[in-house]
């Protein structure tokens, strides 16, 4: 493969990437150009590797940096767990360094990289499977933290939503509108001003007061104070 793409020239800029770390082409009619782009990327990587074989440290650094997302994507596709991907990436970088004399620039670069990555990913998974698992230890098994949601998690979440909804409903009209539009529905100040007929300054002040009141109401954790806060007529702040 001739190095028609000079190193560092005409290299695609970072953008959306597919699972293998390659930039995806957003235009629907660009399937053919995507293939061409991938080929040119492969060619650029091959050129960088050829330069690295000749001792060009800058091309080598660029090559390794460009390989990072590809390696991580391939490792994930191979089934490597998220927390082990970095180990595989580093193992592959070291193997690339050791094997760089075996690369033939007349051949595409990506199959060479893919073979190394897949093998190192399998090695990593084998090592992990050989490692003693703490689930064999009864005490460790019992002490193991379940990363999944706790049994009452959804009930608690629903309770929290109900308490928050009551606290928001108990706010004065202007503050409630500010919280609902600006915080909960994430509308802009302009949109909210147009919808409520209040000025942007008033909305800001109302939101500030509302958050302060909610913090005071929900932060204490006292049921009595919660109840008191929800009682009509006991609103501590007023609208602007």
């Amino acid at each position: 493969m001739a190095c028609a793409v000079p190193a560092g020239h005409d290299r695609p800029t970072p953008q959306a990437r597919d699972p293998f770390g390659w930039a995806t082409v957003a235009r629907p009619a660009a399937a053919a150009s995507g293939r061409t782009e991938r080929m040119s990327r492969d060619q650029a990587l091959a050129c960088d590797m050829a330069a690295a074989q000749a001792g060009d440290a800058e091309a080598y650094r660029r090559l390794l940096r460009d390989c990072l997302p590809v390696i991580a994507g391939l490792a994930r596709a191979q089934g490597v767990r998220a927390e082990a991907v970095d180990d595989v990436v580093q193992d592959v970088l070291l193997t690339i360094h050791r094997a760089r004399a075996t690369y033939d620039p007349a051949r595409p670069f990506l199959p060479w990289l893919r073979a190394i990555t897949q093998r190192r990913a399998i090695d990593g998974m084998r090592r992990a499977s050989r490692r003693p698992r703490e689930v064999h230890d009864p005490i460790a098994y019992e002490a193991e933290v379940d990363r999944g949601p706790a049994p009452g998690h959804r009930l608690e979440a629903r309770d929290r939503e109900r308490v928050l909804a009551r606290a928001v409903a108990a706010l004065p009209e202007g503050q409630r509108q500010a919280v609902e539009h600006l915080a909960l529905q994430e509308r802009s100040l302009e949109e909210t001003a147009a919808l409520t007929g209040r000025t942007k300054g008033a909305l800001k002040v109302n939101l500030h007061r509302a958050l302060k009141a909610l913090r005071r109401t929900l932060g204490s954790g006292s049921a009595d104070r919660d109840e008191a806060a929800f009682r009509p007529g006991e609103r501590g702040t007023h609208d602007v």
């Binding site: 000749a54 001792g55 650094r61 580093q90 970088l93 760089r100 004399a101």
Partner: peptide, 17 residues
């Protein structure tokens, strides 16, 4: 990753294919 890449690139020697 940067440290490893710097270390590999820093000690790079030409290799005979």
């Amino acid at each position: 990753h940067d440290r490893l890449m710097d270390s590999l690139a820093g000690g790079l020697r030409p290799v005979r294919r």
